[in-house]
Amino acid sequence: MSMSAKVKWDGDVRFQGTTGSGFDVMIDGELQKGPRPMELILLGLGGCTSYDVVGILKKTRQDVVDCVAEIEAERADTVPSVFTKIHVKFVVSGRGLNAKKVERAVSLSAEQYCSASIMLEKGGVEITHSFEIVEVA
């Protein structure tokens, strides 16, 4: 499976990104018109792992109504300022959620399914996970 993207300079430290599927995003090194490139990596990681967690929970018939991945990252102090540590905390809301099934969904995503997470770990990033369950009426 192949993917593509195009990034075009838009002046100063801004770039217009276009995905192969036709979506646009403004990338801005000074945070005036869009996210910084490294923030997009965190969003990609969060989207990838959240997709897995929600999908796994739905397949195990958990009544999930919301899932938020809160991501905190540390970067190296030297150039290149790569990520050194990332923590992903899932706040999963639903009715009667089984903690063991949520824990298993998070583990399966981290260890087997999330391409972004696995790729970053192979690059030397320490990634940890936790979760919180919120019961809703």
Rank of each mutant, 00 (worst) to 15 (best):
G22R: 04
G22C: 08
F23N: 12
D24Q: 13
D24K: 10
D24E: 15
D24T: 14
V25E: 04
V25F: 10
M26S: 09
I27Q: 01
I27G: 00
I27V: 15
D28A: 07
D28P: 04
G29Y: 09
G29L: 06
E30K: 06
L31H: 14
L31W: 11
Q32R: 06
Q32G: 13
K33D: 15
K33L: 06
K33M: 03
G34Q: 14
P35T: 12
P35Y: 07
R36S: 03
P37A: 12
P37G: 11
M38E: 12
M38Y: 15
E39Q: 14
L40T: 08
I41T: 15
I41R: 02
L42S: 02
L42T: 07
L43Q: 10
L43W: 00
L43A: 11
G44V: 08
G44F: 01
L45I: 15
L45Q: 14
G46A: 04
G46S: 07
C48N: 08
S50Q: 03
S50Y: 11
Y51C: 00
Y51E: 00
Y51H: 11
Y51P: 00
D52V: 03
V54W: 05
V54T: 10
V54P: 09
V54S: 13
G55Q: 14
I56R: 01
I56N: 06
L57K: 11
L57S: 13
L57C: 09
K58W: 00
K58F: 03
K58S: 02
